[in-house]
Design a protein around this nucleic acid. Sequence first.
DNA 1: TGTACATCAGTGAACGCGCGTTCACTGATGTAC
DNA 2: TGTACATCAGTGAACGCGCGTTCACTGATGTAC
Lengths: 207, 207
Amino acid sequence: MSHTVGIRQTQKLRTRQTLLDAALVLLEHQSLSSLGLREVTRAAGVTPTAFYRHFEDTAALGVALVEETLGSLHGLIAAVLAETGDSEERVDRSVEVIARHVGAQPAHFRFIAREQHGGVGPVREAIAAQLRGFAEEVACALGQEAGSAGWSEDDLLMLGGLYVDHMVITTSTLLEAGPAGEAEVVRVARRRLRLVTIGRAHWLDDA
Amino acid sequence: MSHTVGIRQTQKLRTRQTLLDAALVLLEHQSLSSLGLREVTRAAGVTPTAFYRHFEDTAALGVALVEETLGSLHGLIAAVLAETGDSEERVDRSVEVIARHVGAQPAHFRFIAREQHGGVGPVREAIAAQLRGFAEEVACALGQEAGSAGWSEDDLLMLGGLYVDHMVITTSTLLEAGPAGEAEVVRVARRRLRLVTIGRAHWLDDA
DNA sequence: TGTACATCAGTGAACGCGCGTTCACTGATGTAC
DNA sequence: TGTACATCAGTGAACGCGCGTTCACTGATGTAC
């Protein structure tokens, strides 16, 4: 009667997570479209057939990885937007949070950068949908700031998209730079964002 | 004695180009790391072993495709930079040239967008090197404009990189949007670039 | 110009290998009474 | 609580298939005299 989690379901979820983790490690040096089902199960320590109990194919596993990765960043960015009001502070804090998060989960973000325009349709679409959601959320947060008075919804969405696209560029640049080049990448990213912020401040005057 | 091209070499180059063209078609719906050597030769109408007369492996073919694609765009952008002086006009003309070029050679640019962060190291590096060259060239052209008086070399390079990264984003967005969404993508890209241009105009005042 | 030899782009058969997927199975977990 | 049956996550053998690479080859092109 008691509807606790159930040993069976717990174990199943554990295996599922093992498959996701194993895949992520393998995806650091290859793209999803060349990732083999047997390769994943071998690394995870289960038989190839066990894979089908969790995912239809490797594309479905990829979609699950997208949700795992961007779902967590979503929460962090939303927190920054909620905590900060001033736009200059937001920029600095956002870049900082992203840099730390990417540094903590590099494999996840290498995967996103790699598959954003990769060869697997469903994964591309899942990433695009998540990023679109980000842009809308950022646009909404920007709209509540004093500096955005007089901005059309369309312009806010353009600006939100600009910030999000830069977030993605920054993450993949961070990964390519490695730990040694991190400081330099963050420095350039900050200056780029400041230029955007300045453009934003004069948008209505000059437009 | 006469050192004309030679029938043999002409034919060899023709076969090489056939392989490149066939690969490009196949790469519209998959990424390089999952592209098979046999798949390419089958599409090109030669035997699998003939492949080795031209490329060591599919990664080498990918590097050749990078050069083919970005070499041609390089020339076009350089021409725009040379012909135009005013920054507002440059932005519009550049976006226009890129949109037309991507529209004319969509497969080439889909390939670049896909492999920029893809699973094949040598190809990633070749793309990165080409884009770095672009950024430097753009920075150099910007430095010669009146509006760039007082800008440090470092800031110019930051700005050049910003423009180039936006070029890449725009091309891949154009491809995902398809012909129907092209006008909307170009519209948003123009506004994004205008925001950057406005930021640029006030960079020294506000910094 | 003609001849005899060298080069080498492309051929076709053969190889061993790992792949994705199927199937009937096992045995621990869950459920009904 | 105990028993009898149902569920189902993971197993292990088997399959047909296309892959990358090797090798000796052919015959048109190039070269030397």
